[in-house]
Design a protein around this nucleic acid. Structure first.
Lengths: 225, 225
DNA sequence: GGTAAAGTGTAAAAATTCTGTACTGCTTAT
DNA sequence: ATAAGCAGTACAGAATTTTTACACTTTACC
């Protein structure tokens, strides 16, 4: 999942970036509203964490313009102002959630997860395909008795594939979802990760099918040729 | 599917040509409006990707003249100008879609596919014939439970046959659709590809019938025996 | 802190798959 | 009967994907 963090506070910025990265998100960071606004005109994200008190262009404006462009990406607003009025104002503009500083990291993570889920998988922390149940919180796959743990990358990859299940996902798309801009990765890395994931997944009744030249798609295993 | 790309930017040109070729399109490239215009007087395409900022004769002119000749080939306009007026102008001239630079390759591909579909099969990503459903996006065929994957060539061939279903398609026509100019191919290649496709298709209730001396046609299987 | 274990990307080698050509043998039409 | 058209197979070069090996980081746990 690709996340944009718009925050000017140095410490908070680094801390959050690090945390979300560790969780398997591809995180891009912008430190001011103008850059963020510009970036958002052409780059898509799965979720945006937006501070209100920003230099150059405040969070309200960034959000307003984003929605003005018809973009419905989930936005979670961070604010030092515990002012109720501001909260309401933010929600009116189309924020999906807000969190007042100071907050606990765990809570932010939980809410971000919730936002993403709400958008893509109908509200459940678990998404499934075939006999496979994937818990996005614990990053574990299960089928009946069998449980297996996935690394952050593997989990992110599987999550994407399940969300787009039965549709072709190009390597470029995968790359885009697994990587933020500063960390660049070759398509070979995608291939390697697919390989690793497959090795773990071959226990289940699903497979990552290769569509040569196009990408990969998750499908139910068929016992045919 | 045969695609004409009219683009003068070297990098973009090469990148797009490569991408669409990989996707199974037969791609021809022209770098200026005049050549493109001339080419279009006698060569048919399934879709045209047209840059507006072209040397010699701009995209508007190319499009205008094309439509002036009564040619309805779907045209997707690329433009660096994000000017709404220009967009409207383009649409008035009969462009079928437009895409502002910078754009994502994936999006361009999706729109080109959409244009082709819109033109020939009424908007679905899937086209079907008999019990066969062919997903042009993932290059997979299905009948009930059975799924089979096709290579790029096989997919392109099947797509053409389904679109012209029950009508005879000559080898020359097939050749024209599978190949761009720089890559030439013998009719034997068509025969071989038909053979390969048949081998995969014989699971289903349709067949590629040979019309000696004329070409091939897709038809429902008859239980002759 | 420090040491082992796990996670990850790169590069390169190995394995697959794709695809046109050549060629053999069967069909069909005169 | 004879020639042209077509089907099917085998093959080889390319292109693409899968795997493996390895170096480097990050985490986990003393």
């Amino acid at each position: 999942m690709r996340l944009l963090l718009v925050e000017d506070d140095l410490i908070l910025k680094d801390g959050l970036e690090r945390s979300f990265t560790k969780l398997g998100y591809a995180v891009d960071v912008m430190a001011d509203g103008e850059s963020a606004n510009q970036l958002l005109t052409y780059q898509e994200y799965d979720v945006i964490v937006l501070d209100l008190g920003l230099p150059k262009l405040n969070g309200f404006e960034v959000l307003k313009r984003l929605r003005g462009r018809g973009n419905n990406t989930p936005v979670l607003i961070l604010t030092a102002l515990e002012d109720i009025q501001n909260r309401v104002k933010g929600l009116d503009l189309g924020a999906d959630d807000y969190l007042a500083k100071p907050f606990e990291l765990a809570e932010l993570e939980a809410r971000v997860r919730a936002l993403i889920r709400r958008g893509v998988s109908g509200g459940s922390a678990k998404i499934s395909f075939g006999d496979l149940v994937f818990d996005t919180t614990s990053r574990q796959c299960m089928v009946n008795e069998v449980t297996l743990s996935l690394s952050a990358r593997e989990a992110a990859l599987l999550e994407l594939l399940i969300l787009k299940a039965t549709k072709v996902v190009s390597k470029a798309k995968i790359l885009e979802h697994l990587c933020s801009w500063d960390e660049e990765m070759s398509e070979n890395a995608v291939e390697v990760n697919v390989s690793r994931l497959r090795k773990k997944l071959n226990v289940f009744d699903i497979e990552i099918r290769t569509i040569r030249g196009l990408g990969y798609l998750l499908a139910k295993l068929e016992t045919t040729s």
